[in-house]
Design a protein around this nucleic acid. Sequence first.
DNA 1: ACCCAGGATTTCA
DNA 2: TGAAATCATGGG
Length: 296
Amino acid sequence: MTIRGCSNQMKFGVKIDPLNLDQTLGCGQTFRWRPHGNDTWAGPIADQFFTLRRDGPVLHVEATPGGSRARQLILDHLRAEDDVREIQKVLSRDPVIATGIAHMRGLRIVKIDEWETLASFILATYANIPRIMKMVETLASRFGEPIVEGVNSFPTLDRIRDASRSDLEKCGFGYRAKYIHEVSRLLDDDRISLMKELPYDELRGELIELPGVGDKVADCVSLFGFGKLDAFPIDVWMERAMARLYRRRGSYSRLRTFAHQRFGLYAGYAQEYIYHNERSRARNGACVFTNRRTTV
DNA sequence: ACCCAGGATTTCA
DNA sequence: TGAAATCATGGG
């Protein structure tokens, strides 16, 4: 999906540090960024298409169509105001996390649109990441608006509400189609605006009432969609990691309580370090974390 | 054919 | 409160 001959395009640079695009955009937080080699990634945010290339402390950005909003979209998406060094310093009191952080200095939590995150993680239930990406692309291609050739914006809540149940069932989402359909009818933009004002615990309580939203999806949406850094999503990879690293097993609520006590307000960052490591470990056979020293 | 997937819901003890 | 069955489908 190269951009060529596009007059409505702008380029600029922003300083975001630390930042590693592979670690940040390739670890399952987002489903629409694609690697283009050489530390370059491309994907849509809102109604714009971006190509990102990191060069030292400077992030080079190409935005189509560009405009005054482009810079802020990138800064918000990559949470440029997070003091990642301070967060890493605090979390490093846990030696298990500290070992992992050393290999993931450039990992940042991303901030995604609230509705996009909710719909995406409802689709993500009990599917692997390649399939999740395919389902999200299907939703965008059938209901979103074209941005550049071959790439559509993520469809708005209003647009999905207008879609028929039948249209959604033809997307290959399986049982997830029903949830997307029902949630779109239970929410509106005003309700989401109100939810933005809630603290994590109350937000989580509201999200989990939605059909197709359980413990894990509520925490992913709280963390990536609503920016609640104290959320700690636990999926099958995290269950394995928590058992291996901390000898902690049991119900979601037990693991969540343990995580909150141990990692506090930055549990979300801790989760990403653990999750990213567990998956790269499975791919490479590498073991960054050990459980030899688990005293805080 | 087989196993698993960034699970949620329902059912039953 | 918690284990077990069910769901609908595709990627590896």
